[in-house]
Amino acid sequence: MHSTRHGWKWLLSAPALVVLVLAASGPLLIVLVYSFLTPGNMGGVAWVPTGEAWFRVFFKRDLFEPDVITWNDANLMVLWRSVWLSLQTTVICAVLGFPTAWFIATRPPTNRPFWLFLITIPFWTNILIRTFAIQEMIRNNGTLNTLLDWLGLISAPLDLLFTDFAILLGMAYVFLPLMVLPLYAAMEKLDFRLVEAAYDLYASRRRALWHVILPMVKPGFIAGSILVFIPAIGSYVTPRVLGGGRTMMLGNLIALQFGQGRNWPLGAALSVMLLVIVTAALVLYLRTVSKESGGPRG
């Protein structure tokens, strides 16, 4: 009786399995395979296996002397910038998100849905439109510069657009809710009596925050950081609109290879690189976290 029941029960998960295999694993496999092929003339791939795309992720040959090999610093710079900007975005979101989530979590329970609702408002508008709105705010004749000029604080417009600062601003704005919501979820479960216990045991506000509150909401920081870092490192729209062509991130470089570059294998190899970075970051993060909470503490 039991065995027959279990016999067909897995079928219930079949639709999900089909979607996962076809929609996730399938394309990933195609990308991986393409990264080992030769670029086609008009885009696409020619079925000639080669490691050239992977070679070109890291190295480049001299135009006139193909035997002279140097690091492909342009690609590596983009890789590094993507990681660096995404890390900065994560930190900015954590710093801004903590007080926001704290504010919401300490409202009376009946008011909290209202504040959470406000957090979700940006999701109502397409990210492209929101990003163009930021462009409008910070461009040379934009809202911010006009205001500062009118106030007499600046004589020449600040060059904000098409800088790393602009990208950081845009990404922090876009991804902030993804940090606030898991932080809020962790804080909502926080037992405030533990904070009272810390005060009672002579902790100042700052030390209660450091020794009790932060360790307790750490799962929220972990979830929030993952939710921010992963989409940040793959960002396309924000660096495209706010970084212009000057400051590129990995997403833009990949798009370029599949578009004007007409080098699909290189684009595919860069995509796999992105996946590797994200996976490595996740594994590293989760390992340090579990090590910290598992072992004895002094």
């Binding site: 009596r193 009272e196 216990a197 902790a203």
Partner: peptide
């Protein structure tokens, strides 16, 4: 509470 020579044993213990 952190400036009083008084400590509390809480109802739910409130251990960290």
């Amino acid at each position: 509470p952190n400036a009083r020579p008084v400590n509390t044993v809480f109802q739910n213990y409130a251990l960290f």
